[in-house]
Amino acid sequence: MNAIEAEGVTKAFEIPHASRRTVRGALLGYFRPLPRERLQVLDGVSLEVRQGEALGIMGRNGCGKSTLLKILSGIYAADAGAVRVRTHVTPVLELGVGWNPELDAVDNILLLGTVMGLSLAEARAAVDRVLDFAELSRFANLELKHYSSGMASRLAYAVAFLSVRETLILDEIFAVGDAGFRARCEEHFRKLRAAGHTVVLVSHTADYVERFCDRALLIEGGKVAREGGGAEVARAYLELTRPAAP
């Protein structure tokens, strides 16, 4: 069974040449409409992700990868096309989203855990495991504003991985912490895969797509330019982004 199906997904953003984000501006707009730029971000993208499969998505900056993830996650609405998501999705589009720097690690784990879909009881029960995984048990009661960026990222990673439901949608979040922590994250990621979780992973790092993804897509200009095995698409991506010879 497919966990996710998208068919002909199209998304464009209308960008006015000048901002008129006021009631007065809106009223004026009836009489003097501003010229608008239409930015076609996705143009008929179709994809399927089978249950338990890891799909990599690669492409240059601005090609529409993040917009596609937001549509698959239910954050943006597509202009046209059909999206069917048959499993519960945990989007991790940014590490530490929702952190409150004035609160300590325990409060932030409860906040982020419940925002990402854990019940309050699950989040409370997971506090020690999260702190342990992030190696931050000593700093449990320290406000987050006193954490280094590495410490905060480790904590965010630990909460994100703990909150995973059936399908995990990841947007370029692997480059965190030192080599030891990265190795543990990769190990945890493999365990999630082995447990049958479905993954959609956006990355610019060819190595990750090669190693972790069963299949991959290369997006270019809002369309699927190539589809194939992780290694094949990673090579195509490197080819696409190679600087032109002088």
């Binding site: 002909g8 549509i71 239910g74 202009d79 096309g81 059909a82 999206v83 069917r84 409060d107 309050l120």
Partner: peptide
């Protein structure tokens, strides 16, 4: 294609727990 559909299971959510956490966080 003129159709537009997003069918996804609703997020499995502990709404009471989420509301309690957001209220508690705002208060603190």
């Amino acid at each position: 294609m003129a159709t537009l559909a997003l069918t996804a299971p609703p997020p499995r959510l502990d709404a009471r727990g989420l509301i309690w956490t957001l209220v508690r966080t705002d208060f603190k």
